[in-house]
Structures are given as structure tokens and as C-alpha cells.
């Protein structure tokens, strides 16, 4: 094993709380990710997903509720958007952009990139980027591959090639990082110390896993548990001055009593001094300047030894 291939995506030790630099006056950034992917599985959006009543709700009342709340509280959010969704609903793009929010990419049809075999992943990223650029008037800066309800892992998706391809295509950040709860660099080429800035994501703050998971009608409904997790993490991360990300969908958290939970939590959080509710692109831009990869990424040389009786 030349470095820590097959094991790690980043360097050995995460940044300490005390070493983190946020803009002046900021105690904790709040990254609100809005998941605009209706796909139930990693295969991506199907006609059935698009016909789903709660997706209709998401595009209308759910989204309106989100945008009104964000405007009231001064939150700029990141909308992780499959190219197809941006292409199909120009009004949604207009409403989101008018609110000062970011539209980031989430695949061509909200798919797991692993479905693109034989080198097709790069072409899919390129096509999604083109469609999103045309729909929004600017190239997307961030790329997300969030969890689908039927995924066997609650992590979102990345292949061996994803990070390198995104970096090559000019993306500024990847939005599905589980290796840290502060922004960090996901290594794409250890030999050259290259990587892509990655923003934290954790499924315990994603409404996918709490509101009718894995599917409506029979799924687990635990709105109070989700709210308690959000609150506990905000308290801990605020004290540490680190970072807080949560991930919500207007199809789920836009609805009635669940929306009240989201609104309550966001109101309480925004009432704390020094909370910076910014888009992924803004947070990434700050981090790349305050903690550039050249100064931050410390790849310890591998001391790994291979043995015939164990995995390399």
C-alpha cells in the first residue's frame, strides 16, 4: 500500500477546534443543505419519483415555507439540485436564486455515481455541469451526492474517481464528507498532495433518516429525535466554534408539524451571537483561503507493511 489506499480519504489528524479560523465575529457557520433530489434509489430520478405527491408538495408549499423561513432568519442555504430538476423547473431555480441561495449540483438525475461504468462518470459530471450552468447562469461550485432512502449506507456516494473528476472539472468543493465535522481536504492524488475541499455531512442531521424512513406509509417517523440531535449538535459545535451542517428536504421537513421543528431549531440557532448561515460556496471559499490545502493537508508517509495473510 503506497499511502493509505483503500483505507482513508484524508490525512491522519483533523484540525483542532482552536486552530480553526472563521471570519471575524463568527463563532460557528451553519450550513443548511436543502436536498432537491426526489430519487428513491441510487439509480436516479424515475418517472414514478416525479409523479409522487410529496414531491409536488416539495416544489410548491414545501419550498415556499423554506424560502420564507430562510428569508426571515437571514439564512443563505445550499440547494443540492440534480441537473434534471433545474432543467425541468425553471421557476424553482428562479425562486431559489432570488433568495440569495446557492444551487449546487447533485448529479445528472440525482444518481449514485457508481452507476456510471466504463469511464462514464466524467461525462455525466460534465453534462450535469452544462445543464446546471445553462439553467442557473453560472457554473455550479459545489457537488453533492446525498443519501437515497434505499442506499445501503447513510453516507451519500462517491466512487474511486469522483473526487479527482470534480477537481479536474473545476468544482470548489464536495458536500458529502463524513471523515470530519469541520471542512477538510479529500485526497484525490496522494503523490501530488492533491485533494478537493469537502464539507461535512452526517446522517444524524439529515431528515431523510427520521421522517418516514425509508418510505412513506410504513417508515420510521421520529421528528423529536431529529430535533434533539440537531439541538445537541448545535450546542456542541457552537461551543467548539467548529461547524454545523444539517440536511433537509422540502418534501419531508416542509410539512406541517415537522416544519415547525425545523423553524424552531433554526430560530433558536440564529438567535445565538456569531452564527454565520452561509452557502456551501461561501464557506468553502473562506476555508480555502484561511486553510489552503498547501498548509493544511499533512499526509504522513505510510508505515504500512504488507503480509501475505492479510489485506493490503
Amino acid at each position: 500500500m503506497p499511502w493509505k489506499d483503500h483505507y482513508t480519504t484524508s490525512d491522519e489528524i483533523g484540525i483542532r477546534d482552536a486552530d480553526i479560523h472563521w471570519p471575524n465575529g463568527v463563532q460557528m457557520p451553519l450550513g443548511v443543505t436543502v436536498n432537491l433530489n426526489p430519487a428513491a434509489t441510487g439509480k436516479g430520478i424515475t418517472a414514478k419519483d416525479l409523479a409522487y405527491p410529496t414531491w409536488h408538495f416539495a416544489l410548491n408549499e414545501g419550498l415556499d415555507q423554506f424560502l420564507t423561513l430562510f428569508a426571515d432568519l437571514g439564512i443563505r442555504a445550499t440547494f443540492a439540485t440534480p441537473a434534471l430538476v433545474a432543467d425541468a423547473y425553471p421557476d424553482v431555480v428562479d425562486r431559489v436564486l432570488a433568495g440569495g441561495h446557492e444551487i449546487a449540483a447533485q448529479g445528472l438525475i440525482g444518481e449514485d455515481p457508481a452507476i456510471h461504468t466504463d469511464g462514464g462518470e466524467g461525462a455525466a459530471i460534465e453534462r450535469a455541469t452544462e445543464i446546471l450552468s445553462a439553467a442557473t447562469g453560472a457554473r455550479p461550485k459545489g457537488w453533492y451526492a446525498l443519501s437515497h432512502p434505499d442506499d445501503r449506507a447513510a453516507t451519500g456516494c462517491a466512487t474511486d474517481a469522483t473526487i479527482g473528476l470534480l477537481r479536474d472539472q473545476g468544482y470548489a468543493y464536495f458536500g458529502n464528507g463524513l471523515a470530519d465535522d469541520a471542512p477538510y481536504y479529500w485526497v484525490s492524488d496522494a503523490g501530488r498532495s492533491e485533494g478537493l475541499l469537502t464539507l461535512p455531512y452526517y446522517y444524524h442531521f439529515d431528515d431523510t433518516f427520521f421522517l418516514m424512513f425509508p418510505r412513506e406509509g410504513t417508515g420510521l417517523e421520529r421528528p423529536a429525535a431529529l430535533l434533539r440531535n440537531w439541538r445537541a449538535e448545535v450546542a456542541a459545535q457552537y461551543r467548539r466554534g467548529r461547524y454545523m451542517n444539517l440536511c433537509v428536504s422540502p418534501a419531508r421537513s416542509g410539512w406541517g408539524h415537522r416544519f415547525e421543528n425545523l423553524a424552531t431549531m433554526l430560530r433558536d440557532t440564529m438567535a445565538l451571537p456569531g452564527v454565520w448561515a452561509a452557502t456551501g460556496a461561501e464557506i468553502a471559499d473562506h476555508w480555502a483561503k484561511a486553510h489552503p490545502i498547501e498548509q493544511t493537508l499533512r499526509l504522513t508517509p505510510s508505515i504500512w507493511q504488507d503480509y501475505p495473510d492479510s489485506l493490503s
Binding site: E12, C157, A158, D181, W186
Partner: peptide, 20 residues
């Protein structure tokens, strides 16, 4: 996660334990 050859997201979830 490595032993079971799971995807990168799963490995990164475990990696959190080592680096943070």
C-alpha cells in the same frame, strides 16, 4: 468497512474515528 470492501462514504464514516 475496508474488510467488507464498502464504498468510500462508509470508509470515511469510520475514518472520522481516527482523525477526529
Amino acid at each position: 468497512r475496508r474488510l467488507l470492501n464498502e464504498p468510500w462514504g462508509q470508509k470515511a464514516k469510520g475514518e472520522f474515528g481516527g482523525r477526529v
